[in-house]
């Protein structure tokens, strides 16, 4: 039995150990999921439900399931009907956005071959060209863009874009003069891409090209070990090469002087190998230096002028209200054959 003071102490201890909630209890915030980018419409049903669901998956970025749904739609309608062409193009775009650029290009090539309307064919050719360009296959991208650029019946905006990407194809392949020629045509036409063509045209001018190092000069300078690397700006490698070659060859010379011919021979073989390796490295280093300069130059140009080489992101399309997978309304192409030639 505890005394009264002890009881009071126990009571104080008990009360102090209770959790003190001085702040007002806030009502828990209900967890709400963000709305789906493209919720289903109330009247979904009938033959269009599959393609609408495919578009829904596409908008969610679930490209591979979207492909399945587009293919299900094509299977159900036997590949015919107004929306079939769009579904076929959307498969290509889903493959492209999923990073399968070559498969996307093949899909769009097949659409271009089966197309029976100019608008659809132009769009498929343009998309295939873009996919080949992204897949670093400019040899396949160039002829597709050229087909559109040389077609006088194509919309002016589309032709201008085709010329623009044709110039990029030439640039990727190292055909700078051809790229400048195509851009020159674009500038002379004073079309929609006139200004950005002018910017790229001046960025790839001959005087803007990086000046490289001569592999011959690097090799000749390597007669004195390390000088070839100094010429390339590789100071650390140059000093190492100079040091090792010097030590080994000096050791061989000293051993020969002291008539220790076995050691002299061994050191001379290693030293000469090192010496030759340094000269070889200086030549290959000059070639790598030139290649790296071109890489850096191209990266700068891509950063400054190459934003249009990528498809616009899905969110911006949804915000603009131009979201429709497999279509390019911004280039003046219309797939639905409401007009005689399929052009807006």
């Amino acid at each position: 039995m505890s005394s009264f003071p002890q009881r009071v102490l126990w009571l104080v201890f008990f009360l102090s150990s209770l959790p003190m909630n001085t702040q007002a209890q806030e009502a828990p915030t209900p967890v709400t999921l963000e709305a789906s980018p493209m919720p289903a419409k109330e009247n979904v049903g009938g033959g269009t439900s599959h393609i609408e669901f495919a578009d829904h998956l596409f908008a969610d970025g679930d490209f591979y399931r979207a492909i399945t749904e587009y293919r299900r739609y094509l299977f159900q309608v036997k590949g015919q009907g107004d929306a079939a062409a769009r579904a076929a193009c959307a498969i290509g775009e889903a493959l492209y956005r999923g990073g399968q650029f070559e498969a996307a290009a093949v899909q769009w090539d097949e659409v271009a071959q089966r197309a029976q309307a100019s608008g659809l064919r132009w769009q498929a050719l343009f998309s295939a060209g873009l996919a080949y360009l992204t897949a670093e296959q400019s040899f396949a991208a160039k002829p597709r863009f050229r087909l559109i650029a040389e077609d006088e019946s194509a919309p002016a905006l589309l032709r201008a874009h085709a010329q623009w990407f044709l110039a990029w194809g030439h640039l990727d392949a190292g055909e700078i003069e051809l790229a400048r020629m195509v851009l020159g045509g674009l500038i002379a036409s004073e079309g929609p891409l006139h200004e950005q063509a002018q910017g790229l045209h001046s960025a790839i001018a001959p005087e803007a090209l990086p000046k490289g190092k001569s592999p011959l000069m690097a090799g000749l300078l390597s007669a004195i070990p390390g000088l070839g690397h100094f010429y390339l700006g590789q100071w650390q490698t140059g000093f190492t090469s100079m040091l090792w070659s010097g030590v080994l060859l000096a050791g061989a010379g000293y051993s020969a002087y002291t008539q220790d011919y076995v050691v002299a021979g061994a050191l001379a073989v290693i030293g000469l190998g090192w010496y030759s390796g340094g000269a070889y490295g200086a030549i290959s280093g000059a070639m790598q230096h030139n290649r790296d300069q071109i890489h850096n130059w191209r990266e700068k140009i891509l950063f400054k002028h190459g934003a249009s080489r990528q498809l616009p992101d899905l969110r911006s399309l949804q915000e603009n209200g131009t979201f429709a997978p497999g279509t390019y309304p911004q280039l003046g192409i219309k797939l639905a054959p409401t007009s005689p030639d399929g052009v807006e």
């Binding site: 100019s118 064919r121 002829p143 005689p340 030639d341």
Partner: peptide, 15 residues
């Protein structure tokens, strides 16, 4: 790599 295309026979029809 060229792409061989046939001429469009019936312009304006549903593809």
């Amino acid at each position: 790599q060229l792409l061989l295309l046939s001429p469009i026979a019936t312009e304006g029809q549903s593809p």
